[in-house]
Amino acid sequence: MNIVLKLEHAVSDILAITQRNLIKYTRLPQLIIFSTIQPIMFMLLFTYVFGGAIKTSTGSYIAYLLPGILVQTVLFGSMQTGVSLAEDLSRGIIDRFRSLPITQSAILAARTLTDVVRNIFVIFLMTLVGFIVGFRIEHGVLHFLGGLLIVLCFGFAFSWISACIGLSVKDVETAQVAGFIWVFPLVFASSIFVPVDSMPSWLQVFAKHTPITATANAVRALTLGQPAGDFALQALLWIFGLLAVFIPLAVISYNKRKG
């Protein structure tokens, strides 16, 4: 089979399975609703409860918080990839996919792509609520959209990490716990909610060098009109690095699971 046709088939496989994944959300809209309510609640609580106490260089806390909380939101959203994958693997439909002449890794690609689509929807709503509570784009819409694009790519990269976790555990419950537990320290020890400078120095060493801080800083700089180049480069390097490691890893462990 020639390579163009092969590629065409792979793309159509990915789209077909992505569509299948998305249909599930239209049948179970509560899945989307609850995964949106939680980050919105976070945003409101941080803005109104902690906002006054947290000193940031930006004018209002929401201007600081929104870019960060978008990163947190896609991160948590991405962790759903592994859970959904573990769920699919435990169901009969996976046998159907495996007995069809498809590009087998399309199942993984479709899953991560589905979560990108879901993340787009969720960050759109988050931004909307952000506007209601006082967030403003200060530095041009294009910069802001560029920021969102970085956020989505960041989510996509973490989806592959999550896929690896989902593939390496035996059941959905384990995927749930294993997928989230390690994200919490990363999220809080970062510049998402507070400036890293306010942390004890030993923690700063760690917090300054995570992909989360890099991404949050890049998006924040882009929305606030600060020089963003360094942060954006750092974030993109992280994203490509993670993808380069975790895509092959996920594909290998998917193929290994056979049986």
């Binding site: 249909i23 169901r91 009969g92 996976i94 007995s99």
Partner: peptide, 9 residues
């Protein structure tokens, strides 16, 4: 297969 390979949703 022995168990249905359909998608319930």
């Amino acid at each position: 297969g022995q168990f249905a390979a359909t998608d319930e949703h």
